[in-house]
């Protein structure tokens, strides 16, 4: 009983190995299907499985701990995205950041941050199973047009440089749209909306012969 109370804030919800996990798009791949990439495909789509941790607090308070734990500096400017080797950090609001981490890593990072920060006024919320990353690659023009058909935000490279991420409207839902490098766009999508976003992108991407690659880390893993 008392044990439960002490651990309440830092509850490791990630299942042990051997428990089958289903990504938010696992069923969509089955019931909607995955058009195979072909020679005409100008856009490729895949789901990437990560852990997601929301960080709340003051930038100055969080920055040092984040550097120590993740080796990344906390994005200080609005809409900034720092992309590291294994993790990324994105500004969501003046007191809110999104850390995208290797799957199964959220609890370790949260615990490490909490211990580094001691009594500081911060908050962390694990939302790993609540959202997923849809990655889009392909030729620049087709990618940009697919995004223009989908989001209201200006995705021109002059306005949306690498290292930027925004929360915006996609079709009739919201997504986080990120540009981690020259090659890729990422959509961070809420789990319950993932099927809708997936179907939307397939439909809007038809003219670009969009193809879906099943990530080895996606779907059911054992």
């Amino acid at each position: 009983m008392s044990e439960a109370i002490e651990r309440a804030r830092t509850f490791d919800a990630f299942p042990d190995e051997g428990i089958p996990l289903e990504s938010p798009l696992a069923w969509s791949f089955e019931h909607v299907g995955c058009p195979a990439p072909g020679t005409h495909s100008r856009v490729m789509m895949r789901e990437r499985q990560h852990d997601h941790l929301i960080l709340r607090g003051g930038a100055i308070v969080l920055d040092e701990a984040v550097r120590a734990v993740l080796g990344l500096s906390l994005p200080a400017r609005p809409l900034e995205l720092s992309q590291g080797e294994r993790a990324s950090l994105q500004w969501l609001s003046p007191d809110e950041w999104l850390a995208v981490l290797p799957q199964g890593d959220a609890f370790r990072v949260e615990t490490a941050l909490r211990s580094a920060l001691g009594d500081a006024s911060v908050a962390f919320s694990d939302v790993s199973a609540g959202q997923t990353v849809i990655e889009l690659t392909g030729d620049d023009q087709a990618l940009r047009e697919l995004l223009m058909k989908s989001v209201v935000y200006d995705v021109h490279p002059r306005h949306f440089a690498v290292g930027k991420g925004v929360t915006t409207v996609l079709a009739k839902t919201s997504v986080i749209l990120r540009r981690p490098d020259e090659r890729r766009w990422e959509l961070v999508v809420r789990r319950s909306f993932a099927d809708y976003v997936y179907r939307w992108l397939l439909d809007a991407g038809e003219e670009f012969a969009i193809g879906v690659e099943r990530d080895v880390t996606a779907g059911e893993t054992t």
Binding site: P78, L79, S93, P94, V152, Y153, V166, T167, T168, V169
Partner: peptide, 11 residues
């Protein structure tokens, strides 16, 4: 004034 950008009304 927080994102420091012009954004569409839909947001």
């Amino acid at each position: 004034p927080y994102c420091d950008e012009w954004r569409e009304e839909e947001e």
